[in-house]
Amino acid sequence: MEIPYTVEARRDTGLNNGKIGIWLFLASEVMLFGALFASYILIRTGSSSWPRGDTILSVPLATFNTLVLISSSVTMVMAWASLMRRKLGTFRMYIGGTVLLGLVFLIVKYFEYSDKFHHGHFPSTDNFYAIYFTLTGLHMLHVAGGMAVNAYFWGPGAKQYYTNPEWFTNRVENSGLFWHFVDLVWIFLFPTLYLL
């Protein structure tokens, strides 16, 4: 038995199953991060004092990380574009680059976190740190998840290219949608936590 429309698009919707699935998933993610942002606004507006992010957190490191994530989004679309051109070698280079940039992001985050811990700042210190660690921690989990999927497509998953390149391209596109979403969340997290 085969499930219809895993690869080819259904005529009346113009979409394959995976594309709808990933967008629905992203819709739920929007609500997840939306709830956290709403909580942030509520707690911040309700507290008597709130520090500016740049007096506590390292803006240069975060700016660097923003640039890293944006670059990784570009390598991700380039990976997909290479598959559209049926160039597996270029795809592997780009998707590998995406994973590496993700790794750089996590390493920078590791230094940020350990610096905070070193100075005795923990989630329990105050609600600024509580929000900071919760939001960035959850975001980091998403980065790690996206990296795992992309690493799979770089490694063992790439075998599918030889049997069904079209399906493989679709899957990479969907993984890319998730990756861009993670980037998008960071684009909002960065000014919220670091600059305001």
């Binding site: 919707t13 979409l15 679309v77 980037d183 684009i187």
Partner: peptide, 18 residues
């Protein structure tokens, strides 16, 4: 990011509806 990297600028109606 949403319009170009995620191709929302030229997506199907169903996705817009969702």
């Amino acid at each position: 990011v949403a319009c170009y990297f995620m191709h929302l600028i030229s997506e199907k109606k169903l996705i817009y509806a969702v």
